[in-house]
């Protein structure tokens, strides 16, 4: 049985059986406050699935992309939960969960027609006037969404232009379905495949400003004649 945790948007936790049946989901849509709710959501998901922690055999971790501060809470939680039980962490690209949900829904809604798979982009808010997006097309033989392009960031205004060029449908997501994250992990494990890196998908370097020389504190007029020759700076 899988415990799935994602904090790349809100906070989402699910318990998923090995055959992909979603036993329980517990979510909070608060885009902040991940650290506040993560413990209770894990507890609630386990309780709703009527299992305790010892029933979990692997933890699916949503690796992003997503705003850093929240994203880390879920990854940290997935790692320590797994450590506590001595079980593996299965890293999953968070957009894969959305893609799988869309593809499964389309398969149901579309009946049995064998329509060719259209490329589509899962799009999430990356803050700072940027979107994070990943392009998919259909499911592979293992039932996993096929990533045509890896997760990337783009200025919000540029996204539609980029997608149009490739005739890619835009599918915005407000939340990551943890049950689907667990299902991606279950299918990956069943197929003996690794589907994501175990590094957080930050897609951005940390914000840092390199220090300049110390700022001058002496008012120019008070600095005296010596300032005229430029001092040491």
């Amino acid at each position: 049985m899988f415990l799935a945790i994602d904090t790349s948007l809100g906070t989402a936790v699910a318990v998923v059986e090995d055959d992909g049946v979603i036993a329980a989901q517990a979510t909070s849509s608060d885009p902040r406050g991940h650290a506040e709710v993560i413990g209770t959501l894990i507890q609630r998901a386990l309780a709703e699935a009527s299992v305790d922690a010892s029933a979990i055999d692997a933890v699916a971790a949503g690796m992003g992309p997503g705003p850093f501060t929240g994203l880390r809470v879920g990854i940290a939680a997935a790692r320590t939960f797994a450590l506590g039980r001595g079980i593996p962490v299965i890293p999953v690209a968070s957009h894969d969960a959305v893609a799988l949900e869309l593809l499964l829904f389309d398969a149901l809604a579309g009946g049995f027609q064998d329509a060719p798979d259209e490329p589509f982009a899962v799009v999430t808010d990356a803050r700072r006037r940027e979107f994070a997006y990943t392009v998919y097309r259909g499911l592979d033989a293992d039932g996993l969404p096929v990533r045509v392009a890896e997760p990337a960031l783009t200025p919000r205004d540029d996204l539609d232009g980029i997608l149009e060029t490739g005739s890619i449908l835009r599918r915005d997501a407000e939340a990551i379905p943890a049950g689907m994250l667990g299902l991606v992990a279950a299918r990956a494990v069943a197929a003996g495949r690794s589907v994501a890196s175990s590094d957080a998908l930050y897609l951005r370097s940390p914000d840092v400003t390199m220090p300049h020389g110390p700022k001058k504190v002496t008012p120019a007029a008070a600095a005296g004649a010596g300032a005229a020759d430029g001092g040491t700076r």
């Binding site: 945790i5 904090t7 991940h34 650290a35 993560i38 413990g39 894990i42 507890q43 386990l46 305790d52 922690a53 979990i56 850093f68 501060t69 880390r72 809470v73 879920g74 940290a76 939680a77 997935a78 790692r79 320590t80 939960f81 797994a82 450590l83 506590g84 039980r85």
Partner: peptide
């Protein structure tokens, strides 16, 4: 630092729940 603290808080909660130990 808020962002730094959150990593520890998330980790500690999940560890406690996983072990069934008080936090």
């Amino acid at each position: 630092l808020a962002g730094a603290l959150m990593v520890g808080v998330g980790a500690a909660k999940a560890l406690a729940v996983s072990l069934g130990k008080p936090l």
